[in-house]
């Protein structure tokens, strides 16, 4: 093979590899997004899968966050303002996790109807303001946006 052809071959290989990797990443993203997003209402209606991971999203209900003083165990209720489901989790919660905050938990449904989360992520909205301004609003923007 001449050096020129060899170079072309490598070029084509690199291009194919690049397109392939990009396509795989897109599919990966789609897969994760298509991994069904269940609201507490869906879970109460028995629609959540019993044997594999899914995501549940909603607001953390005020006054339901209970931390175990001796470990990192925590459980709390998540609501879509219609139904409520309990999530338990072991680990460090993100800084934004607080009552009334929107969160997304990935995990499995236990037989007793509790979601055992492997991961808890906090979702914030696109509003940025100083605390004084947030306090003066009639509704907290974080809650309004959900």
């Amino acid at each position: 093979m001449t050096p020129v052809r060899k170079k072309r071959l490598w070029l084509i290989l690199a291009l194919v590899l690049g397109v392939g990797v990009s396509a795989a990443l897109v599919l990966q993203a789609f897969n994760q997004n298509m991994m069904f997003y269940y609201s507490p209402k869906d879970i109460k209606a028995g629609q959540a899968p019993a044997n594999h991971d899914f995501r549940v999203g909603g607001l953390v209900v005020a006054g339901t966050v209970k931390r175990d003083p001796s470990s990192l165990d925590v459980h709390f209720d998540v609501t879509d303002l219609t139904e409520t489901v309990t999530v338990k989790y072991t680990g460090i919660l993100p800084d934004l996790f607080r009552e009334g905050q929107g969160i997304i938990a990935r995990g499995r449904l236990l037989p007793d109807g509790v979601v055992e989360a492997a991961e808890v992520l906090a979702k914030h909205d696109e509003n940025y303001m100083p605390p004084e301004v947030a306090d003066s609003l009639p509704h907290k923007p974080a809650e309004e946006a959900q």
């Binding site: 993203a29 993100p94 992520l121 914030h124």
Partner: peptide
């Protein structure tokens, strides 16, 4: 620090 993860495969980050 905010979301609780360095990376997720969501559409914004992947694109």
């Amino acid at each position: 620090p905010m979301w609780g993860t360095w990376w997720v495969w969501d559409a914004r980050m992947t694109s």
